[in-house]
Nucleic acid binder design. Structure first.
Lengths: 319, 319
DNA sequence: ATGAAAGCGCTAACAG
DNA sequence: CTGTTAGCGCTTTCAT
């Protein structure tokens, strides 16, 4: 692994100053076009590539953003990672992905570790307290996704409107008793979804049973099917698709037919596989949300604005 | 965002040399314990954190490794990302994740972009040619996962043995005609799995039909069910679980019962959800594979060794 | 339009 | 044990 050529090597070979080489890359317009061409040609010939560490040291810009998520195995985050990376790429940035397991202390620790290398952080469904976030935002740029804290720039992938539509659809089909299978407590998404379900159900005069699936796993969803069957509801709204599929499987095992006996609505639409019957869900525009977040980071707008990205109701076979 | 304190600030406040502060962090044993304590205390008081860009510039070590994968939405890679990140964390490294869509040119381009910032690269199922990889390995450390190129350090998550067992199980249960639904062509995993299926089938005197699912999607698996049903096989081995579930769904739609009419075996065991009936599969030790890869990178062993990590047959309800 | 020189924050000889 | 002194490779005034 030979030591790569530096800006000085290129300069010497051409009999120009190192600063000229630097300018050929960063500010070519102030140079004579011919000079730029010669520098670029020689650089290519030598295989010169700017040393990002040196650049970072002088400019303070590392070209890195951090993406902090809870759980890589949740398909929601696959779409999040992809969108973040694509947008970063477009902005000549790279993304560091950090998984923190819904554990605030671990999250803080990992953030402290990446902090010195990144230009900014996208925090998805963070568990950090407002105080810690305020402290953090003094050290780096921060954009929140799916956390609604005033004062911070935040992007919210909202299911509310689509969920409203979905419940009206359920009610229109004759549903009178509803179950909502909730996800991670204290998260903004959970608050929004449960809030919407409760409100719309009340408006329509539907009864609602709350069943919890705190960790948001498939197994919890399947276990929840038991209480759901006991409650004799006509429809189930699940926090997300993973839970919804658990419920679907659990219900099937118990001999409850979907959608004939019970209708089922999920949320996210991120699974790499479908099932039979195909799950009706709220398709969240996760890509849009994370692209927006990365852009806000890059623009460095300390705007503190609140951006809502609505999902759309996607009716398939379980409603 | 105030400018953070530097090593010089800490040194001045204590009346010691900057190098002493540096040593208190990097080589405390050569310092008087009392000195170390004073430096660390003052550093903590000022909120001093080493500037990684400066460190990277002087030492040449950025504390970053790159993980290059094909497709974040494939659950295989969720386990890969998690394992890589955990092991990196343990080694005081951070991981940059890059998704390249099974496209060699895009892969090369993205690699060139991260190259200047990383200490090494883990390439999972790379599409890069041996020539390009050789060229790459002159510029940075490279460890391959699921690519078997002599001369490179490589870790292979092998399904062969477990698949062999699985097929014998299928044959023991009376299967005579087999279908194999293949995944991404030219990949090592595909070659290994298809090779094993063909070999073991021949040994046992089973007929084998090859059906392809090049992109490895659920939809292709479901589509493949048609040819599978036509071929009137008794058992199906799928390249991975995503495809297997597509096949399962497709077969169900066609009225073919699993496992009563056709038995089904997947590979990977990485899905965040289960289905009904639960899929029998080969559980790959993806964590072990990527942990090993990261460690090999960090150790910088230019060993070029070939490490096999076997999977285990996991019998559930479809065989 | 280009060169010279200083400095980003840190580490690593080399002294003592 | 600790201080002094050079850089690492690049950008950026300030000159010319």
């Amino acid at each position: 692994m030979a030591k790569p050529p530096t800006i000085v090597d290129v300069a010497h070979m051409l009999g120009v100053a190192p600063s000229t080489v630097s300018r050929a890359f960063n500010n070519p317009r102030i140079l004579k076009p011919d000079t730029v061409a010669r520098v670029l040609a020689k650089a290519a010939e030598l295989g010169y590539v700017p040393n990002r560490h040196a650049q970072a040291l002088t400019t303070g810009r590392s070209g890195l953003v951090g993406l902090v998520i809870r759980d890589v195995s949740n398909p929601f985050f696959a779409r999040a990672i992809r969108a973040t990376q694509r947008e970063a790429e477009r902005l000549s940035l790279n993304a560091i992905v950090v998984e923190c397991d819904s554990d605030a202390d671990r999250e803080q620790r990992l953030i402290d570790r990446v902090l010195p290398q990144v230009e900014g952080l996208v925090l998805a469904s963070t568990r950090l307290s407002a105080a810690r976030l305020t402290e953090l935002s003094r050290r780096t740029r921060v954009v929140l996704v799916n956390s609604d804290l005033a004062g911070f720039t935040r992007v919210l992938a909202s299911a509310s409107e689509a969920l409203d539509q979905g419940i009206r659809l359920l009610a229109g089909a004759g549903a009178r008793k509803l179950a909502y299978v909730g996800g991670p407590p204290y998260s903004w998404s959970e608050a929004e979804r449960w809030g919407t379900v409760r409100r719309v159900a009340a408006e329509r005069g539907l009864a609602v049973t709350y069943v919890s699936a705190n960790m948001g796993t498939y197994g919890e969803g399947r276990a929840a099917a038991v209480s759901i069957a006991e409650a004799e509801v006509d429809a189930v709204v699940a926090f997300d698709d993973v839970i919804a599929h658990g419920v679907l499987d659990g219900l099937t095992i118990l001999g409850v037919r979907v959608p004939e006996d019970v209708r089922l609505l999920g949320c996210d639409d991120a699974l790499p596989i479908e099932t039979h019957p195909r799950l009706s869900t709220v398709r969240l525009d996760i890509e849009q949300a994370f692209v927006t977040a990365v852009r806000a980071l890059a623009e460095g707008s300390v705007s503190g604005q609140r951006i809502l990205v609505p999902g759309v109701l996607t009716v398939r076979e379980t409603t």
